[in-house]
Simulated assay, not measured.
Amino acid sequence: MTGPSAVVVVHQDKDAMAQATAARLIAAVADAQIARGTASVVLTGGRNGIGLLAALAASPARSTVNWARLDLWWGDERFLPDGDPDRNHTQARAALLDAVPLDPARVHPMPPSDAAASPEAAAEAYAAELAAAAGPFDVLLLGVGPDTHVASLFPGHPALEETDRAVVAVHDAPKPPPVRVSLTVPTIRSAREVWLLAAGEDKAKAVATALSGADTSAPAARVHGTERTLWLVDEAAAPA
């Protein structure tokens, strides 16, 4: 990791982690809106990413965010039809987005399979949408898989090595569904802050591997923010 040194924050369990991270994200968004008038956050799926969104929905402090001045993006997506229950966007809507007064023009889901001819076309369209946006992401959220994958960038997969494109199509992903669209490592590294979420004993080895820096093939070891990198974990996933 060549960016700012990672800070590890350990929480008692996954629920405490979700609630504390929700409070932290509310504060980060409010601070960005005070400083720049708007804020930009990249969401993640998975049990920890969606758990965070549910905690945001339940937080009484959510009213401190100007939701109409918030841009939401996604770090990756399953290339499935719009509304498919396995899409991160669908799950995010159910957990939070439908409950807060967002500006629909500021919600940027990755194109679904029924709106793009191919995952490559979806990646190109999303890259163009990113290019038209002003400024870097304020906070980019990433779940960490047991194999150290982040977004849909898996160990040993060609997408992990992409350096020219902002968004990439992913084929033959080792977890279903196999066809996906993902931000690339350089795009992730362009965010002001990158927050990596990991909870549960099944994530402990991945967290330890990534933080040690010894395995440069680990996707989670390759990502960082330009200003801050946070690892938000529970005790079960925390490095010894």
Rank of each mutant, 00 (worst) to 15 (best):
A68R: 05
R78L: 05
P85Q: 04
A68I: 02
A61G: 11
W74S: 01
Q33F: 06
E77L: 04
D31H: 09
L56V: 10
L53C: 14
T38L: 12
W67Y: 03
S40M: 05
N88H: 10
N66F: 05
N48K: 00
W73G: 11
L72G: 02
G46F: 04
G83C: 12
D84H: 15
V42T: 08
R87S: 08
L43F: 14
N48A: 14
T38I: 13
T90R: 03
R47I: 12
D84K: 10
N66Q: 14
R36L: 14
A55S: 14
I50S: 00
R78Q: 01
A28D: 11
L70K: 00
P60G: 10
T38K: 08
A58H: 04
N88R: 00
A27E: 15
G49K: 13
A35W: 01
W73Y: 15
T64M: 02
A54T: 15
A35Q: 13
S63G: 13
R87L: 07
R78S: 02
W74F: 15
P81D: 06
L52T: 00
R62I: 12
P85T: 10
G45M: 06
G75K: 05
G51R: 00
I50V: 15
I26Y: 09
A28V: 03
S40R: 14
W73D: 11
T90D: 06
V29F: 02
P81T: 09
D86I: 07
S59N: 12
R62Y: 09
R78W: 09
L53T: 12
L52P: 06
A27I: 04
R87T: 12
R47N: 15
D71I: 04
S40I: 02
V65N: 01
A57K: 07
G45A: 09
N88F: 14
A54W: 00
R87F: 07
I50Y: 02
D86W: 09
R47Y: 09
P81K: 05
G49C: 08
A54G: 08
A32D: 03
L70F: 10
G51V: 06
D76K: 05
G37I: 10
V42W: 02
A55P: 04
L56D: 04
P60A: 11
G46N: 05
D31L: 04
G51T: 06
P85A: 00
R47F: 09
N66K: 08
A30Q: 14
S59H: 12
L70M: 05
S63K: 13
L43W: 09
V29W: 00
T38A: 11
D84V: 07
W73V: 02
W67L: 05
G37H: 13
P85M: 06
D82G: 01
L43E: 09
G49I: 06
